[in-house]
Write a protein that binds this DNA or RNA. Sequence first.
RNA 1: GGAGACGUCGCAUAGUCCGGUCGAGUGCACCACCCUGCUAAGGUGGAGUCCCCUCCGGGGGACCGAGGGUUCAAAUCCCUCCGUCUCCGCCA
Length: 419
Amino acid sequence: MIDPVLLRSDPDRIRASQIARGEDPDVVDRAIAADLLRRTALGDFEGLRAEQNAHSRTVAQAPKEEKAALVAQAQTLAARVKAAQQAATDAEAAFDAIVSDIGNVVIDGVPAGGEDDWALVREVGTPRAFDFEPRDHVELGELTGAIDIPRGTKVSGSRFYFLRGWGARLELALMRLGLDTAIEAGFEPLITPTLVKPEIMRGTGFLGAHADEIYYLPADELYLTGTSEVALAGYHADEILDLSAGPIRYAGWSACYRREAGAAGKDNRGILRVHQFHKLEMFCYTAQEDAEAEHLRLLGLQERMLQACELAYRVIDVAAGDLGSSAARKYDVEAWVPTQETYRELTSTSNCTTFQARRLGIRSRGEDGRTSPVATLNGTLATTRWIVAILETHQRADGAISVPAALAPYLGTDVIPVR
RNA sequence: GGAGACGUCGCAUAGUCCGGUCGAGUGCACCACCCUGCUAAGGUGGAGUCCCCUCCGGGGGACCGAGGGUUCAAAUCCCUCCGUCUCCGCCA
């Protein structure tokens, strides 16, 4: 949720943000009108309620013989209060509905436009040149016995897979490398629930336009999370945090579930786009003024991981229209995937400023003793998808895989052999 | 799965049977000041969260697990849900 005060103090900023996102700027005017209506209705109700409370005290103290008359008066007043309360509740709901349509206010400098309008921040490393025809990760996964897609499909359907042998160990090695990187950087490990309640899912902003991406278990009214970000954001819901010692940082480790409903026919081959995978996710709660510095810090940790895996990559500043409703800025780190001859997203880091925290009721106390919403940030440190780039980048002519030096101790081998 | 008890202001509790004087008492912890040469003890006062209005002095509203209902009036009565605990049963 955006800051409702901003509607009155600086509506132009919200309009500009909406335009950058390619969304309707007029929603701002509708929100302002609804806000006015809401406050008027609230004022009416509260005035009447004050009257009723005062009258109620009179009734309570009145001698018996006067009570009947006073109660009769109170009855008509009660009816008016009830009507006014209903009007206020309705106006509040109308306001909420409109405001919840407004995406987070984009940070200055974020490129305007849609999916293809990202800005390049930097390219690091050189895509590997091959003196043989490189195999794709599906083929390499078969040769090494690391990935078993046919059986994944047999057991669970399309976009499912088994990681097996060195494949399973590679995923764990990646996660362990990521975890140690995170711990060293001051993150506390957290293994999170992957089923969450509707209010938590809604609070993180995932039940908006892309709600059809999420698995839902109606029998239990629970959602399967597509990222541990959901549980990590919900972890401190309705709490007042002490950030006096600096940001609170977690590294969440969980399975992630995605329906990929909008991706029919896209990335069908291999494990690039799957319904279930594992992810190590960084999540930070910071004071509002520290958020942008923290964001760059998360990006730096992600790049360190890519470098440790000896992958060529680029960093992009994702355009406003491709941010999702909660993010005010998002950087993707994309690794070169040789057989696709392009960069593919391996990590993503978002600064959600106070947008999530407002919905989830997460605040901190400032030096003046007042509470204000915190900023939340998240960023990937490792996922199953990295296996794609690692296998393809470090393959040998025979199909074996040279293991990057940083990963080898975790994996327990320098080479993943052909089976 | 069955039976029962409970959920109150940071923590612990009173209030609920018999609705109004209860947004709510007490203890501990907390903050400020006073006092005691230090410490301990004592005294006085303060303190929650959210929202609305403001001539920025303040005024008003909401919140007793959540949501409904009854009533002029609900922490208190009724219903639903959630959670915790105890006992029994069943299963990993």
